[in-house]
Nucleic acid binder design. Structure first.
Lengths: 156, 156
DNA sequence: ATCCTATATGAAAATGGTTTCCATTAGCAA
DNA sequence: TTGCTAATGGAAACCATTTTCATATAGGAT
């Protein structure tokens, strides 16, 4: 009862229910992991972190839930070139701050950065406006990533 | 003989040989397709286009060649979210001009645009400089993509 | 032109992240 | 509590990409 009551007040509750999705303990647990861990989690990462406490949540459910969350805009799905999708919480009431990524093409390490974001976003907004008009394209999101060699890999 | 002579003078010849790769008719054919077709080709697209004229070039070779070409920086590999890698010729003597992508999240259509590129690249260069210093990260490449709904999909 | 050896190749099999199937379970509105 | 429908998990299917391995070929040396 208490647990159930708790769920009813989660900040994502409204969004979930509003879109006709049900709030299950599995989904709650997955969102919980995502908000507690630093980003860049793969489906299997989440499965591993979840398994000790929730051994009955299968990989399939995790994939399905991540899909739902991404569709709702609660999380973002990334491809960092290591052959598996990676997910991180989008900005939200408890969300991490907006950042972009530096990706090491050698060791696949990913560094988040928040510097320069403001300038980047400002330019992006102007660009978006122009592109919207010219191509009648309704832009909802953008992706900026820098590729190169991290400190360690560069020394070889 | 003539053909062979021809090959020796392809603009990519130097780069190939310089890196210890051999210039084979298969590789030449793949580069040829890439430079003749408008971008966004998948490995299978290339296979299909190649097959009528070169029925003896297998998919495996195409994957391997694309890998080599990407490592040499002659082509770029993209992920547009349709579950298969897509490749396009990088800028070069005969290469297409620098552009970025608009990706429709509904129909997966990709639109190239060259507008705003200059401003974008200018900002990116500054950002790169700053990031390089702060994170000691040697940036070699960047990716900018906009996601949203194309003209047609937006009307639903 | 011919030899020689490392590189390149193709066919088939393996891989592995993700999705689908389907019978069962569980939200949640009434 | 009941009923309807969405959600779930395990196993099997999917499918782009990679690996394996025996054979062919590029291209430098002779």
């Amino acid at each position: 009862m208490v647990k159930n009551n708790c769920r009813r007040h989660g900040w994502w509750n409204i969004k979930f229910r509003g879109c006709g999705y049900r709030l299950t303990s599995g989904r709650e647990a997955i969102l919980d992991i995502l908000s507690k861990s630093e980003g860049h989690l793969s489906a299997e990462d989440i499965y591993m972190k979840l398994h000790p406490k929730y051994p009955n949540i299968g990989l399939t459910t995790i994939y399905r839930t991540l899909d739902v969350l991404a569709n709702l805009g609660l999380i973002f799905k990334f491809d960092f070139g290591d052959k598996r999708a990676r997910y991180e919480l989008a900005e939200g009431p408890k969300g991490a701050q907006h950042h972009h990524h530096l990706i090491c093409t050698s060791c696949k390490r990913v560094i988040d950065y928040t510097d320069f974001i403001d300038e980047e976003v400002k330019l992006l907004n102007e660009t978006e406006k122009g592109l919207c008009q010219k191509y009648e394209f309704k832009i909802t999101n953008h992706l900026i990533q820098f590729y190169g060699l991290c400190k360690i890999c560069a020394k070889r």
